[in-house]
């Protein structure tokens, strides 16, 4: 029994180490002096930890601007997505209107189609609307999502109808019912949706790559990909840039871990 436990924890720790090594190495290298990460024998810990690389990102390279772009797009996308999808998800889950279930089924068809099929025409459409190379254009695809509507709907389905009806009989309008009863009750799943949207907007690469053509509009991942072309030899600098991109995502995840995990399992119950 004892040796079985040792083996079990050895496996658990081994997998944890394999998972963490790339991230830990990124942290270590980001604090090394230029050239240190490409000196043999390899060092895993910086000899004299330095913030030089981080300073470099903000002074000689203008990564603060890209950071601000990422924050702006991500925050706006998150707010938009929560408002739009919560309203729609609640309507599909709880309001009675003709054609509701047929409409919802039609919408779920969208889950079968990869977004990339429409990406080129979407680019042309936004070009006609003058939205290429604008923040608005960058955040449009995150605003409404079938996954988000689905997530809210599943949760809203469990709201007790009596509660809503009682408020209606008291003369509350549908908007009051939504604002004063529905929203406070489904807040947990709204946080889940917000976390999902935040992380997917923060991490996304392909859409911003297509729609944001000027480098002063670029998000962090785009700026990082460009830098990695010019500064391929500056390992330590690139690792500092990666840290700057990874850290906000990790922190948001750690803060809202429970909500995020709930979204994963809720989505998998009925694909």
């Amino acid at each position: 029994m004892r040796s079985r436990a040792i083996l079990l924890y050895a496996l658990l720790l081994g997998v944890a180490a394999l998972t963490l090594v790339p991230l830990l190495w990124m942290v270590a290298a980001s604090f090394m002096s230029p050239g240190e990460a490409t000196t043999l024998p390899l060092r895993l810990v910086p000899r004299h930890p330095t913030f030089e690389n981080y300073l470099h990102l903000f002074t000689r390279l203008d990564l603060a601007r890209n950071f601000a772009n990422s924050v702006l797009i991500t925050v706006l996308a998150t707010c938009g997505s929560v408002v739009v999808n919560t309203m729609a998800g609640y309507a599909f889950g709880k309001l009675i209107f003709p054609g509701r279930d047929r409409l919802f089924r039609a919408l779920t068809l969208a889950l079968l189609v990869p977004a990339q099929v429409g990406m080129l025409p979407l680019f042309l459409l936004l070009r006609e609307l003058g939205l290429v190379n604008t923040y608005m254009g960058a955040l449009i695809p995150y605003m409404a999502s079938v996954f988000g509507i689905f997530l809210i709907r599943q949760y809203a389905l469990s709201l007790p109808g009596d509660l809503l009806d009682a408020a209606r009989v008291d003369g509350a309008s549908e908007f009051r019912v939504f604002w004063w009863i529905v929203v406070p009750t489904i807040k947990p799943i709204m946080v889940t949706l917000a976390t999902f949207t935040f992380l997917s907007a923060w991490n996304d690469f392909m859409w911003p790559l297509i729609i944001l053509t000027d480098s002063d509009k670029h998000t962090l991942p785009l700026a990082l990909a460009n830098l990695s072309g010019e500064h391929v030899l500056d390992t330590e600098l690139m690792m500092a840039g990666s840290m700057l991109t990874v850290l906000p995502a990790l922190l948001v995840f750690l803060a809202f871990q429970r909500s995020y995990m709930r979204g994963i399992t809720a989505g998998s119950v009925k694909g």
Binding site: N203, L224, S242, L250, F253
Partner: peptide
């Protein structure tokens, strides 16, 4: 810990 890589931006970890 096992989940952490999922939430990291793909571009950043691809560079790593």
């Amino acid at each position: 810990i096992y989940f952490a890589p999922v939430v990291t931006p793909l571009v950043a970890v691809a560079i790593v």
